[in-house]
Each structure stands twice: as structure tokens, then as C-alpha cells.
Nucleic acid binder design. Structure first.
Lengths: 221, 221
DNA sequence: CTTCATTTATGACTATAGTCAGTTTATCTA
DNA sequence: TAGATAAACTGACTATAGTCATAAATGAAG
């Protein structure tokens, strides 16, 4: 009973679309499902059009054609809504970034991967900053699931990349690949933060990122 | 005129105490000075006693014996107040952490330094998380000065440490010491985040940090 | 169809960060 | 000292995220 969650786990975390062999999905379930989609859709549109800070929860509720209270049965907070809108996209982006096999030098592969992710973030700097902030600083236990899955995709993708490069003789790292992956991502995250926060230019960001990654994998920049 | 700042630069950023050879410091200045001290003191007490979220700006104003509006002439936001309360302490902590000369292995020196900083943060996990969040994600230009100074102390301290260790033959790093320092701090930051966010235990945190730092400086863990 | 229990929906309401038009206080000048 | 100007102060006010007691909808059982 600890940490009450709304509407079960918010429609079982955007439940799958009519899983075969599963429950017949009565009117109730369909309603919830459809309502959640309306809400996330409305939030996506408004966040995109006006920005996060300029969108009120009232507006989202209105756009989704529900009461203001209902909104908070489907999302714990406005930030939660933001994560709902972008989580899957982010995971997909990360997966895609790791899916292209390559025989390039490890450093170049890494820069490629991070640049792909970057292109996604760069589409909207304000949202990206808020996402980086909210995703990495969950204050409710429920959000940890989100960040955990995303981090898992990124960390394991990077670890695999490192392991394979070493197996192919293209690098020589003794350390635990997982720790190397975490180290690499930490550097990407902080560099991105500096850029989005206006402390560095895009050119500086890219240059520094490459140097940071090179240091981690012990390769000449 | 862009980004209006209140009361000049909030009493010239907690101005020095009667700089010799400077202005005679009339009643007005003394009032401002004293009021700022009352405000920061009140905020410090309340944040410490009740926590950040549980303290209202009204309470701070009341404790400092000023009107609610006045508070926001001295601080732009509640978060700003938090930074005011802890910024100098954090910088001092960082300076102190770098001030003890040592002939130990670089990795051990680094772990020592970060452990010292950690002890400061660990005194209050909730405040630490909010600080990590607010300090690294300034949304107003004015706050960038804060983070810039703190980051400068940390980055240059680490860079010096690395440079000296290499000069003494205790390590062999070809890369720009500044970039190495940034890399090291990025790892500390993310590991600390994981710990404070409850994703890792303290033991894991320390173990992972050591491994991450070792990877960066290319030394066996 | 008619209870009845359970789930879901609602909007008036609360709490609080931050604003602003109007007031007070300090300083300067004559 | 009086008057004028500028700086600093104020609390009633606004805006909005999130709550909660109540109402409506749904589905199960008889």
C-alpha cells in the first residue's frame, strides 16, 4: 500500500495493444487506454507548440477533453507527463543509435552514437534540458523505472560496443565494460549539459566530448 | 538592461565586509548588508531544520523579519536562496579538499578528494540532491556565475593534481589535464547522483567511483 | 431489470512561488 | 530644515500545480 499509484500503474505503463491470449479488454480498459492516449497526445502537442513552462495542466486537460483532476489520475505530475511523452522516443532513439554495426575505430563509433542521440535532443533545446533534468532527478519512486530502462539500454549498448571492439582487436581495455560504458555516458551527459546550459558552444561541445571519450578509452584524440 | 537584476547584484554578491580603502558604507549599505545576512541566515536555519520543500518563502521572510516581496529583491527564487546558503560552503569544501598535499598514488588522491566532498554532501541527502540539481541546471543567467566559480575550483584543482602527479612520475597521461579533470568530475557527479537518487548503495557508489576514476586515468583499479 | 460495490471522473478548492502598484525611508541639495 | 529624488520595502494579489470530497459510470450478481 506504500506510495499509492493512480489507476493501477497508469494503464499498466501504456499497456500493449490487445495482447493476443490476454484479457478480452472490456469497455473500461478501452476507455482508459484511449484516454491515456488522448492525454499524452495533447501533452505532446502543447509541449511542442508552446514549450513546457508555457503549457498549463489546465490546457492539457482541456485539450484532452477531461477534467483537471482526471489528468492526475493518469500522471503524477506535469514532469511525469513530460517523461511519458518522450520516454519511448528516447529509448527508441538510443536503440537505433546502437543498431548500425560498424568497423570504424571505437572512438569514431562512440562519437557517432552520441551524435545520433544528440540530433534527437537538439530538436528542442528547452525540452531537452528539462528532460535531462527530470529524467536524471526522479523524486518519486515510480519514475525510477523510466530512467532505469533508458539507462539500461544506453549502458548495455555502449558496453557491447566496447566489448566487440576489443574482441576485434580494435582496442585494449582491461576494465569492466560496464564501468567503461558508465564512464562514457557520464561524460556525454555532462558535456551535453554544458552545451544546453549555454556554458559551451556546439563546436566546443563536440571537441570536448571527443577528448573526454578518448581519455576514457585510452586512445589518442 | 537584459535580465533585470534586483538590488544591484544582490549586495554585490554578499559583498565583502568593509573593504579598506573603499566607500564609507552609509546606512543604506549597512542595512542591505545586514538584511541579506538575516535572510540567508533564516533560510539556512529553516532549510536545515525542516528541509527545502517543507520551508515556505513566507516562513523565511517572517524569520528574517521582512515582507514577502522584499525576499525576492535579494533572491530571485527559492532555489537561488538555496544556492546562496550553500555556495560558499561548497567552494570552501572543494578548496579544502584540494589543499592537503599528498604523495599517494593519483587514484588514491582522487578518491580522497571526492570522499571529502562527499562527506559534506552526505550530511543532508535531500539538500544535496536539490543542490546537485539546481546548481547544474541554472535557468537564469545570473546563476551561471555561481556554478562557473564552483566548477572552476573543482576542475582546476583536479587538473593541478593530475599535472603534479604526472610531473612526479606517478602517472603518464598525454591528454589535456583540463579534459582529464572534467572527465573525472563528470564521473563523480553521475555516481553521486545514482547514490543520492537511491539507484545504488553507498558501497556500490564508492566501488563504482573508484573503478570509473581508474578507467579515466588509465590505472588498474 | 434492479441493487450494490468498485472503479473512474470531476471541478471547486488549497497551497505557495513570485509580482507589482503604491508607500516608506534614506540621501542629497539649497 | 524643507523639498526633491531615488532606493528600498511592502502585503495584497495573481497564477498554477496538485488534492479531495462527491458524483457518475461500469460491471457483477440476483
Amino acid at each position: 500500500m506504500a506510495g499509492r499509484r493512480n489507476l493501477e500503474t497508469a494503464v499498466a505503463e501504456t499497456a500493449s495493444v490487445t495482447e493476443p491470449g490476454k484479457a478480452p479488454l472490456g469497455r473500461r480498459e478501452r476507455n482508459k487506454q484511449e484516454k491515456l492516449e488522448r492525454i499524452v497526445g495533447a501533452a505532446r502537442r502543447l509541449f511542442h507548440d508552446r514549450g513546457f513552462a508555457e503549457t498549463t495542466t489546465q490546457q492539457i486537460a482541456e485539450e484532452a477533453d477531461i477534467g483537471t483532476g482526471t489528468l492526475f489520475l493518469y500522471a503524477r505530475s506535469k514532469e511525469d507527463l513530460l517523461v511519458m511523452v518522450f520516454r519511448d522516443e528516447m529509448i527508441e532513439t538510443a536503440r537505433a543509435a546502437f543498431s548500425k554495426p560498424s568497423k570504424a575505430a571505437l572512438l569514431d563509433q562512440l562519437v557517432d552514437v552520441f551524435t545520433s542521440m544528440l540530433d534527437y535532443h537538439a530538436r528542442d533545446a528547452e525540452l531537452a534540458r528539462i528532460l535531462l533534468k527530470e529524467v536524471m532527478f526522479p523524486d518519486a519512486a515510480s519514475k525510477q523505472a523510466d530512467i532505469t530502462e533508458l539507462l539500461e539500454v544506453i549502458h548495455s549498448g555502449l558496453a557491447d560496443m566496447v566489448t566487440q571492439a576489443c574482441a576485434a582487436g580494435r582496442c585494449d581495455l582491461k576494465a569492466n565494460p560496464r564501468r567503461v560504458a558508465e564512464n562514457l555516458f557520464a561524460n556525454y551527459y555532462m558535456d551535453l549539459l554544458g552545451w544546453l546550459g549555454g556554458r559551451t558552444s556546439r563546436a566546443q561541445f563536440l571537441s570536448h566530448l571527443r577528448q573526454h571519450l578518448a581519455i576514457t578509452i585510452g586512445s589518442p584524440a
